[in-house]
Design a protein around this nucleic acid. Sequence first.
DNA 1: CGCGAAAACCTGTCCAGACAGGTCTTGCGC
DNA 2: GCGCAAGACCTGTCTGGACAGGTTTTCGCG
Lengths: 408, 408
Amino acid sequence: MKSADIREALLAEIGAGKFAATGRLPSEAALCRRFGAARGTVREALAALVRAGLVAKRNGAGSFLTRMAQNRTGLIGLAIPDYDRYRFFATVRDRIEALARRAGFDVRLVTGGDLPHAARRLVSERAEGVIFRPLLARRGATANRAFAERLKSAGIPLVLLDQDIAAPPERSEYDLVAVNNVNAGRRIASHLLARGRRRVAFLMGPRTNGPNPNWENRLFGLTGELALRGVNQAVRILRFEPGNAAALRRAMLGPRRPDAIVCGNDENAVALLATLRGAGLRVPDDVALVGFDDLECARFCEVPLTTVRQPAQLIASAAIRMLLARIRNPESSPRETCLPAPLVVRDSTETQIPQRAATGAGNTSRNAGNPRSFSERTATEGETRQLAATDVQRNPRSSSGCQGSSMK
Amino acid sequence: MKSADIREALLAEIGAGKFAATGRLPSEAALCRRFGAARGTVREALAALVRAGLVAKRNGAGSFLTRMAQNRTGLIGLAIPDYDRYRFFATVRDRIEALARRAGFDVRLVTGGDLPHAARRLVSERAEGVIFRPLLARRGATANRAFAERLKSAGIPLVLLDQDIAAPPERSEYDLVAVNNVNAGRRIASHLLARGRRRVAFLMGPRTNGPNPNWENRLFGLTGELALRGVNQAVRILRFEPGNAAALRRAMLGPRRPDAIVCGNDENAVALLATLRGAGLRVPDDVALVGFDDLECARFCEVPLTTVRQPAQLIASAAIRMLLARIRNPESSPRETCLPAPLVVRDSTETQIPQRAATGAGNTSRNAGNPRSFSERTATEGETRQLAATDVQRNPRSSSGCQGSSMK
DNA sequence: CGCGAAAACCTGTCCAGACAGGTCTTGCGC
DNA sequence: GCGCAAGACCTGTCTGGACAGGTTTTCGCG
């Protein structure tokens, strides 16, 4: 067990940081003298460390610690300008850090809107790859591009999070990890249809906001699914701020007034909830309300919101996996990974419309007496055509027993 | 260069099948005698073969060929029931075989609609993974499921091609490689808008065909992009066979008659082209026509078709990559890769509508005199918001630069 | 002070021989 | 015919020594 002994001894010393100063191990001859072993034995021990990725040998020069073995681990950049706006990103960050550390990388988080500064910093710190959540199209299209180009010219691979830096339908040359927003929109449509809602609107915000590719895809799915299921009425696109009471009141007049409003995110949905209440409209009785992202506010606001959950774990692990693959192989063609996002059903859509029976399942009266008992659950059959494990997540708010017991 | 010589000599003999009978290599001592080398040298040569995965050593027993080294290489299944219906699949197959071979796998192609038989065969031949292009939803939903379950219970990983076996918006538990049909639809919409077409129809075929998830997504993108660009008129969904002249004539009457028809695939588009001609309608003057898939018939039919190309190389390499990753790591969560499909512009959309100017770029008159000179090219700016390298492919009609599908 | 050649150093590769311990076959005893 | 133990066989590991060729440092010359 001599070579193994030598290997363990060296391993311990590497772990203790003994060679960190120079990054250089003693020569094979020196190790022979020290351990009283033949050179072949020492070489076997070193070979094991090379296989483990801790040591790199250079012909004629000596044996050196790899970056992974030194405590100067590799660095990955995580650039999220909007980091402070959504707690959700903290979850993603935690997960990315955990996975990166396992692969021998530290994570440098850079936040705030100063993308040129962020790029300079990541380049100067020699990040080996960067995960980047771009700014929204109109706000940051050129800034996003410049950021990506800056890293590219420094030879640093980039993986985009949540959205591309090219405006769809185009694709940039960078890897992308995104949620399947079209399918999420379709799920919402199925769910609303099962609740008898047919006059669906999408709150896109004022035109000055500019395009939001993710919202567009959600809208496409919503519209498309409704049309396929035979809803003749087109989805109305509401073009005002969620706090604009006058515009909301106008929209809620007449026979075309929506019986369900889908918002691009939970913030808007919560704001709209307040405006609806101010206008004397009840959720979900007068109008159902659906958000996106499953922020905390969606769960704990006045009427808990039905929303689509961003799969933080999946996003993080897909991003890290993609980035590591890209670091290993910088030349392959750009990749796009698409993640499923589950619908989380809460109170804001849970009252059946009384005047017209649902087209799908006929469970109208069964739930009518006690809507609170269904305060949170995931989509069931009849709302969506089929149930897949990846698309359902448990999310108990109060108790766990209320879920699916009688619905299934 | 002695150990390298020995390694090469052994490699050649392995390649020639010399040890295939017993699967056993000569002992190290025997190799020493034969090559006149020291045992360390022989061991170094063998170690290289072990690292290459060709040889496995068993302590006390000897050195043996791995399965990969014997001509019994690993086996990957490629199950494409509709293989004979589209030449396109032959391109994908060639590419998959090339990539699989490089990883030490043979490919077993199983075609035809008898999925239970295909599953039995792949299980009995001990395929280590299967790439599967499912049958369309209504035709084969349960058959697809049964096929997947059969392989799953045999512990064989599965990667789906082109579409899921669960009906969207749901996702099955299997990996999926698909084209971004939504974005493809959006590209078509942009292109048609730039040509001044605003009354767009989608030929979905008769209702009895059942749902086609890919077509649905194409429709969603088409509809959504038009709506976003301010086209008030909804996309008409045509529900008849492409050969149904009477239904077509009815659809082409009145003020809402389409000035552009998008088909779910090129076969339908070519059939519709004939029907249009029979009805005395000219393409593209009276109505523009767009297909999908870029089959040969799209290029060489009477009026060459604008269509969306299936990126065969990308599809094949993504599928193989996913399957190998899944074989290595069977437990990770299901993945979905989304590929860009470029728009190939040919004659069938290349006449500008005269009565109304295009909303976007004003290149109305420039092309009018000589449309043939634009008989084939890819999307340009103004049609789509921005140009990305991945979404544009050159596709000369006459020369050989095109991808393998043309002459195969 | 700068530059280039020589020297020192280091790993890559190879040789010849040895013992430990796992695996397989043979043959003996029951 | 069966079971088991001995022995043959094989790889794993180690010793000690050698030369080739790449890398780094040193030192002397201009």
